[in-house]
């Protein structure tokens, strides 16, 4: 499921509520029929994985950082199974050759893949991703999203992600949640992706084009606020 909306529309806040980092002011979050806010952190950690938008780059090596994702499942020391899962996650994110390097020496996109690998290693039932592709190049955007798509299909994992690239979201998500000013504007399948809805949410006129199987959203390059920079500078002087 893709969460789509403007900056500050509440995408990250929603994801944090879904994972218990923030308590909703009204309403409750249910996970497998249980109230999430009544669950212990360790319990939530076994079921819900989360990759925030911003993260600290610790001194850990990549392998240790990903192994940390196994923490909710490890009692004393990691088992061979834990190592196998980490191995799989590293390979899936194509970062195995950096395994023994400190995370902070990597580039932004590589670090983002480390964080994704950690969430995958956590083997959650629900995976919450806050802009998982924001630092990735085109190739890795497609690779990562493909992999997540396969995981959702094969393992029945629910993946909820926020994303600014509507076209990428359109290709991989089957449900969409449009947020506007902290409220749900629309929720549903592809049918809610209409030029009218997108214009209402983003204040930008768009046209939809059908290319093969999927729909392409193209903004009509006309900003709503016709702010003339040169003019305003002249006025100031």
């Amino acid at each position: 499921m893709a969460v789509i909306g403007m900056n500050g529309s509440g995408k990250s806040t929603l994801l944090k509520c879904l994972n218990g980092l923030l308590k909703p002011r009204s309403g409750i979050v249910m996970l497998d029929g249980k109230n999430l806010n009544k669950m212990k952190r360790e319990e939530i950690a076994k079921h819900v994985g989360y990759v925030p938008q911003r993260y600290h780059e610790g001194d850990l090596t990549v392998f240790d950082a990903v192994l940390l994702g196994r923490k909710p499942h490890i009692y004393w020391s990691p088992s061979d199974y834990d190592f196998d899962v980490v191995n799989y996650a590293l390979q899936a994110m194509e970062i195995e050759r950096y395994a023994l390097r400190p995370v902070r020496e990597l580039s932004g996109g590589e670090i983002q893949r480390v964080m994704l690998a950690r969430a995958i290693a956590q083997e959650p039932k629900v995976l919450l991703l806050d802009e998982p592709t924001s630092s990735l190049d085109l190739y890795h955007q497609i690779e990562v999203m493909n992999l997540l798509y396969m995981m959702a299909k094969d393992m029945g994992m629910a993946i909820i992600f926020s994303m600014h690239d509507i076209n990428l979201a359109l290709q991989f998500a089957d449900r969409f949640l449009l947020l506007k000013e902290g409220k749900v504007y629309a929720y549903g399948g592809l049918e809610i992706i209409t030029p009218q809805n997108i214009e209402d949410v983003f204040k930008v006129e768009v046209s939809l084009t059908q290319i093969g199987d999927h729909i392409l959203v193209t903004p009509l390059l006309k900003s709503k606020n016709n702010f003339d920079f040169a003019e305003s500078v002249n006025l100031g002087a």
Partner: peptide, 11 residues
């Protein structure tokens, strides 16, 4: 060390 948010998500 990976940040308080990540720590919380890890239980």
């Amino acid at each position: 060390m990976e940040g308080a948010e990540v720590a919380k998500t890890l239980g």
